[in-house]
Design a protein around this nucleic acid. Structure first.
Lengths: 245, 245
DNA sequence: TAGGCAATTTCTGCATGCAATATGACAAGA
DNA sequence: TCTTGTCATATTGCATGCAGAAATTGCCTA
């Protein structure tokens, strides 16, 4: 036995070891859903998916149970699992709910965030500005996601942070609605400037209101995009082709 | 997956026949955890539990995955599942989080509740008064749970209602902290009177503030009870006896 | 030709078996 | 006596097999 263990690098990286197969499957499935690889509403044959992932049905079924608990798939007894359809009428309740969380975040962060937290948020805010300048919508959306997640964590309330990320993930599926709206991107960044200002000043009510407003405006933009673009005709389902191009 | 109310007394649960075995297991496990049958932090041997329920390990494992996703059990890879320990430091974040939801409920219900909703809430409120008169703490807690759940549903926001019930279930595990505090019961009912008044008048801000305050006061009572009673010495574990009496 | 019924086929749900890992005890050496 | 290495046991993780339900197809009848 080697005294100096090889320590295959993973030991260091994986603080939270997803050593088990079904855990990894949950991650992969979540990625699939969040990236929109699987068309919404489509059935998920267990055998096909298990073969695709190279595992047996048992861990896949366990992973599907978790995804169902998180609301990304719907399990119908004896009738298989379907990808939870992206329902445009679901956006409004999600945004409304998230608004309440945003407000609480705004109320808590000023009194609980450390200087390191704010510094980290400043850094993300700079990255956000870079993405805006480059007109890199994908990057902007991603950094924006990370910023708000970080902000939620700065409340030092793990329940809040976890639930916030959960609702963020659900809304993430509708991000395509605003991906191409440049003016919304600019407006969003302006709101972020105000948020950062309130954050630096650590003014509770101001930050809460700005976050709520930011959430509300983003939701309105999504709703408007959904209303104008007739994107939800359930007939055509060839959205994945846009990726292969 | 919808989080169907478990709300003790399994008779209510069976409105929606969970045809699949693991679904029933989830319900039974949730009931076990909510009733505190299983001591927190204890390991859950799969074989023992599967024999107790008279099923094989497969559906039990699937049910445990769901419970883990909901935060009631913790799965350690290759080391089995443990009942999520009831951590008194978790109460404050839960209450704080629920406060944000209460406020949103208060803001939404006045403009969205139907007359039938309010009538139903009036009925529950009467039952609550009866329970108070009888000094039936268990009934009071249960009806109180149902009342607030119904109120959340009256917002017509399914996301809010579902998340509210989830956080309610988590806090439910700490209800023993206030089960014996008669004065808190009386105060709670007084607050409910105010809530009902605001509800009848359909005054948004008033209802929101009253709900937030009600939540805050309940949380404070729980925190105080946790601080005074040295209930969390991990040595003695004979809490289930309080039910059989 | 259209509609209904039945058989087949496909897929899900659950039980069981085997391999892998963790846990505890025990013995040998310092 | 304490540490360390090894082994035995128990438990988890995953694959496979079988029974049952649902979906589909084909056939028969009106």
């Amino acid at each position: 036995m080697p005294v100096f263990a090889v320590l295959p690098t993973e030991e260091f990286v994986l603080d939270e070891a997803p050593a088990t197969l079904h855990d990894r499957l949950v991650s992969r499935l979540r990625a699939l859903f969040l990236e929109g690889e699987l068309p919404e509403g489509s059935r998920i044959p267990e055998i096909a998916l298990s073969e695709r992932f190279g595992v047996s049905r048992t861990p896949l079924r366990e992973a599907l149970k978790v995804m169902a608990a998180e609301g990304f798939v719907i399990l119908r007894p004896n009738r298989g699992a379907v990808v939870a359809p992206v329902d445009p009428t679901e956006v409004a309740p999600l945004v409304e709910f998230k608004g309440a969380l945003e407000r609480l975040i705004g109320l808590l962060v000023p009194s609980r965030a450390s200087e390191a937290d704010i510094a980290e948020l400043e850094r993300l805010h700079l990255d956000l500005g870079d993405a805006l300048e480059r007109q890199d919508h994908a990057a902007y959306t991603r950094i924006n996601y990370a910023f708000h997640q970080r902000l939620a964590q700065a409340t030092r309330n793990p329940v809040l942070a976890q639930n916030y990320e959960a609702v963020q993930q659900k809304i993430w599926r509708y991000r395509f609605t605003i991906n191409e709206l440049s003016d919304r991107l600019t407006a969003s960044y302006a709101e972020h400037e105000g948020i950062m200002a309130a954050l630096r000043a650590r003014t509770r009510l101001d930050l809460a209101e700005r976050l709520e407003e930011h959430n509300r405006l983003t939701g309105e933009a999504m709703a408007q995009a959904l209303a104008t673009t007739g994107r939800f005709s359930p007939s055509h389902k060839s959205r994945k082709r846009s990726r292969s191009a």
